[in-house]
Computed example of a mutant assay.
Amino acid sequence: MKRHALADYPRESCGLVVAGSYRPLANHATDPAAHFRIDDADYLAHAGAIEAIVHSHPDGPPHPSAADMRGQIDSAVPWAILATDGERCSEPILWGDGVPVPDLIGREFRHGVTDCYALVRDWFLLERGIRLPDFPRDDEWWHAGGNLYLDHFADAGFSVVRSGEAVAGDVALMTVLSPVPNHAGVVLDGGLLLHHLPRRLSRREPFGPWHRQIVHILRHKDLAHG
């Protein structure tokens, strides 16, 4: 994968993982420096056996764009990204349902892969057996007028409850230097909050200091408390 990404720089490399092996393919995009497209014949030749779709980000970030996230969801197989400057290349960043879930505590922040919403999704999957939908998003979407949480929380099965009634398993929506809620965490027993901020490791910490940032407390329909 790395050799292919370096060899194709400054174009995006692309390929498939089939039967545990990486198969480099040609990039048929009209603008291969900014996008990739795998030929339909190449894709169909391995349909049903594809374990991951791989592409590089030349001089780009080591995390998915909203378009990458949308493509991964539509393909229903994991995707991987390698960031390269033509001389160095990152390790593949793999994401998507079916990829092993990292530990909830102490994970590094990576937009779209292990960010605050990913932590909420992973907690619900591991602790409650509930698979929340993912939503494609660009990094720092709130600066571009996005409103990820308020636009989608109902689609994910949540409704608003009064903040004074928060119990373990509820989700706190918060603002961090943003006019709209751009951060989320899971309320835990013992007055704790599980959350993940950029440039920090995911952590449990006292919920109290975050009360001033809270916009809404959400409760999932499958976790209704009597």
Rank of each mutant, 00 (worst) to 15 (best):
I53E: 06
I53C: 07
V54F: 09
V54Y: 09
V54K: 00
H55W: 04
H55P: 10
S56Q: 06
S56W: 09
H57D: 03
P58D: 14
P58Q: 13
D59S: 13
D59R: 12
P61W: 02
P62C: 04
H63Q: 07
P64E: 03
P64W: 04
A66D: 10
A66T: 05
A66N: 01
A67F: 11
D68G: 07
D68S: 11
D68C: 12
M69D: 04
Q72I: 03
Q72W: 00
Q72F: 02
I73D: 10
I73C: 01
I73G: 05
D74C: 08
S75V: 05
S75D: 04
S75F: 08
V77P: 05
V77F: 08
P78A: 12
P78E: 11
A80E: 14
I81F: 02
I81D: 03
L82P: 02
A83G: 11
T84C: 11
D85R: 10
D85C: 07
G86S: 05
G86K: 07
R88K: 06
R88T: 15
C89A: 12
C89S: 00
S90P: 01
E91A: 15
P92S: 02
P92F: 02
P92W: 03
L94W: 12
W95M: 11
D97N: 04
D97V: 00
D97K: 03
G98Y: 01
G98F: 00
G98I: 00
G98D: 00
V99E: 09
P100V: 11
P100Y: 08
P100C: 09
V101N: 03
V101C: 04
P102F: 03
P102Q: 07
I105R: 13
R107I: 11
E108N: 09
E108G: 11
E108Q: 12
F109I: 12
R110N: 15
G112S: 02
G112Y: 14
V113W: 04
V113S: 01
T114L: 07
D115S: 10
D115M: 14
